[in-house]
Each structure stands twice: as structure tokens, then as C-alpha cells.
Simulated assay, not measured.
Amino acid sequence: MSEGTAGSQWYDNEAGPLVRPYAMTGGRTQAGPTGAHFDLIALVTLVTDAADADDDSLLGPEHRHLIDLCRTETQSVAELAADTDLPVGVVRVLLGDLLERGRVTVSRPVPPAQLPDERILHEVIAGLRAL
């Protein structure tokens, strides 16, 4: 066996410390008791006027990273997972924590079926021009 502790042959020096996803979420797989379901396209916005907006000491580093990513602009769950390099399931649980604390809001984009018909919009524009 190579030098080091048993099992170290599975890790390379460039990988850095390995933290299992269940350690980041405390073993949870659901996004909190609120029953929130985070679709990949759900949009996450930071709440800047939350009661504990300045107190990040109770949050883990992953929570703070998500807050930092949302600080500049609204992000989708898929974007947050990609930017943090975390599995989507972990990001959903962490976002559930932030939602419970009132640190973020989650909205869903308008489904294409609920958008107005393009023909109607052209008629409205034509009507406005006619005025």
C-alpha cells in the first residue's frame, strides 16, 4: 500500500478536503418542514432586509456561499448548484434552511402557457400606436 493512511490511495493531493454531502445538510434530504420544492428553474432572490441579515455566524460556509452568489443578482437553483459545485439535492436543502430563516425568497418563472399570445401583444402595440 502507498504511504499515508489506509484508503488514501483513493484521493489525490489536488482534491483537497473531502466533505460528504450528508455532512453539509446534517443528513437531511428534504428542504425543511416548509415543504418547499425547489425546481431547477426556480429563481432565488436574497432578502436584504431580513431580521438577521447581518448575522451569518449561525450559518455554515455553504449557506454563506449561496448568500454571496444571490447578493448580486437573482439566480436559478441550477445556477447555484453549478456555481457552488454542489449536488442539486444539497443546494435544495441549504436553500430550504435559508428560506426558513427568511434570508431568501423563491419564485417560479411564468410558464410559457400562461404568457400572453404574441398576436395579442402585436394588436395592443398597434392599438397604442393608433392613439
Results as ranks from 00 to 15, higher is better:
38 F>W: 13
85 D>Y: 07
87 P>W: 08
121 L>R: 13
60 G>M: 04
94 L>R: 10
70 C>Y: 02
32 G>D: 09
90 V>S: 13
17 P>V: 05
94 L>N: 03
122 H>P: 01
115 L>Y: 00
10 W>H: 12
126 A>Y: 03
1 M>Q: 06
76 S>Y: 12
111 P>Q: 01
103 R>K: 08
74 T>R: 15
4 G>R: 12
114 Q>I: 01
47 V>Q: 09
25 T>D: 07
126 A>G: 03
43 L>N: 06
123 E>T: 02
47 V>E: 08
87 P>L: 08
69 L>W: 03
6 A>D: 11
28 R>V: 02
89 G>F: 04
39 D>R: 15
85 D>E: 11
12 D>N: 13
8 S>F: 01
86 L>R: 15
72 T>V: 11
85 D>S: 11
5 T>V: 04
124 V>R: 05
49 D>H: 05
67 I>S: 01
6 A>M: 07
90 V>H: 02
90 V>R: 00
40 L>I: 00
115 L>A: 05
57 S>N: 10
93 V>G: 03
126 A>W: 02
95 L>M: 08
75 Q>P: 06
39 D>Y: 08
79 E>I: 00
41 I>N: 15
103 R>S: 11
106 V>F: 05
90 V>I: 06
2 S>H: 09
67 I>N: 05
131 L>V: 05
35 G>L: 12
128 L>W: 08
65 H>G: 02
29 T>M: 04
66 L>S: 10
111 P>W: 00
48 T>L: 10
94 L>C: 08
11 Y>C: 05
131 L>Y: 06
53 A>M: 07
63 H>Y: 04
74 T>Y: 06
10 W>C: 00
29 T>C: 04
96 G>Q: 10
4 G>E: 01
124 V>Q: 08
41 I>G: 06
114 Q>S: 14
104 V>D: 09
28 R>A: 12
69 L>K: 07
119 R>S: 14
62 E>Y: 10
76 S>T: 15
25 T>F: 04
87 P>F: 10
31 A>K: 13
52 D>E: 10
4 G>T: 00
60 G>H: 04
63 H>P: 02
2 S>E: 10
33 P>W: 03
54 D>W: 06
127 G>W: 11
58 L>R: 09
54 D>P: 00
124 V>E: 06
51 A>F: 09
88 V>I: 15
75 Q>K: 15
61 P>Q: 13
80 L>T: 02
27 G>K: 09
106 V>C: 15
131 L>D: 03
131 L>G: 07
73 E>S: 15
84 T>P: 01
91 V>Q: 11
111 P>V: 04
61 P>F: 07
89 G>E: 14
42 A>T: 12
57 S>T: 14
109 P>L: 03
5 T>D: 08
93 V>I: 10
50 A>D: 11
109 P>R: 02
41 I>P: 01
71 R>K: 14
117 D>W: 09
43 L>H: 02
110 V>L: 14
56 D>Q: 05
37 H>V: 13
86 L>M: 13
93 V>S: 08
44 V>H: 03
